[in-house]
Design a protein around this nucleic acid. Structure first.
Length: 330
DNA sequence: CAGTCCCGCCAATTT
DNA sequence: AAATTGGCGGGACTG
């Protein structure tokens, strides 16, 4: 009922300090050291100074990339960046096998969904809307196509299957923002401007895409989001914190303009975003699967699907890195 | 004003 | 029943 708010005054509060991306950076920094292999959610929340809920977000996304793996209640196993390459490869393959767009109403569980009788409409597969699955599907969008730039709107549209529901779209996009922030903090993607519409979009930062290059490109070499002076503990004023009056912590203004984008190269080829009002510059291929094209009431989705089918014949040489997929240790 | 996305309510699951 | 998980989206914050 009554909510604690109206802190319109002394808010020395900086939103960026509470961002999921920063939290992720700190989380990773906290566990990316030798000797670590078990992560307790309680400890994480405590160490990072955030509520449990936030840890779940980070953990679920990270697990989708293979950085972590749930061990048991409250416990996750640290797999590290090294496991990302393998996880990404697995995602490509899995996408290869699925011959239909993943949607919210389509299950893809590998096991037999022996759901006999019993109107199990209620006991829906919870994975359907999990952040983890969304994360993986988002990755597939980048890895399984030639598209260089993808906007969250475009991704949401594609991942949504159809249902042009305004509400569903908004919710999906909101989730995508979370994932994008985490990925950005890890350097997996970079925010760019859609040259066509000028709207924000993301680009996968060469990790897993054509050309082996190297596993996980940058883990911590070029972070634009500066962390705090030296405190991993992200304890600061909340937007509307009642108790827990912290002393006047040294609040260095984090706003200003200090975005240090690396040497970008405004070089794009394909654009994934609805409203793509560019010339028919979209490369057209003649994949046999292009024939199968469900009637999406939206052109954007159609294009997206086009890219998917186009990607079917892309990865052929998968026998190059099949080593880091294990999970032997505990 | 258009993007972002924090925050935490509360439902679903698990213990 | 209590404790964990984690959808979901209102609405505050940017730029």
């Amino acid at each position: 009922m009554a909510s604690r708010d109206s802190r319109t005054k002394d808010a020395l509060y900086c939103r960026k300090e509470k961002s999921l991306g920063l939290l992720c950076t700190n989380f990773l920094k906290l566990y990316d050291r030798e000797g670590v292999d078990s992560i307790g959610l309680d400890a994480s929340a405590l160490q990072l100074g955030v509520e449990r809920r936030r840890i779940y977000d980070i953990v679920n996304i990270l697990e989708g990339i293979g950085v972590l793996q749930k061990k048991e209640k409250n416990q996750y196993t640290w797999k590290g960046y090294a496991a990302v390459s393998g996880a990404l490869e697995v995602l490509k393959v899995s996408n290869d096998k699925e011959h239909s767009l993943p949607s919210d109403s389509k299950a893809e569980c590998p096991d037999k969904c022996s759901q006999s009788g019993k109107s199990g409409e209620l006991l829906k597969h919870k994975r359907e809307k999990s952040l983890g699955l969304l994360t993986q599907n988002f990755v597939k969008l980048f890895l399984c196509s030639e598209a260089e730039i993808i906007s969250l709107d475009g991704a949401a549209l594609a991942l949504l299957g159809d249902s042009l529901d305004r509400t569903a779209m908004r919710t999906k996009i909101r989730r995508l923002y979370d994932i994008a922030n985490v990925f950005s903090s890890m350097g997996l993607i970079e925010k760019v401007r859609d040259p066509g519409s000028g709207k924000p979009a993301f680009r996968w930062t060469s990790v897993g895409r054509s050309g082996n290059g190297s596993s996980i490109a940058s883990e911590d070499k070029n972070h634009k989001r500066r962390a705090f002076g030296a405190d991993i503990t992200n304890t600061s004023v909340k937007r509307c914190n009642t108790n827990n009056a912290l002393t006047t912590e040294q609040h260095q203004q984090c706003s200003s303009k200090e975005f240090v984008f690396g040497p970008f190269s405004p070089n794009v080829t394909t654009v994934w975003s609805h409203e793509t009002r560019k010339d028919g510059q979209i490369q057209n291929s003649d994949s046999p699967l292009c024939a199968y094209r469900p009637q999406y009431s939206n052109k954007a989705v159609g294009d997206l699907f086009h890219h998917y089918t186009e990607a079917w014949s892309s990865w052929r040489g998968e026998a190059e890195e099949k080593q880091q997929i294990e999970h032997a240790s505990e």
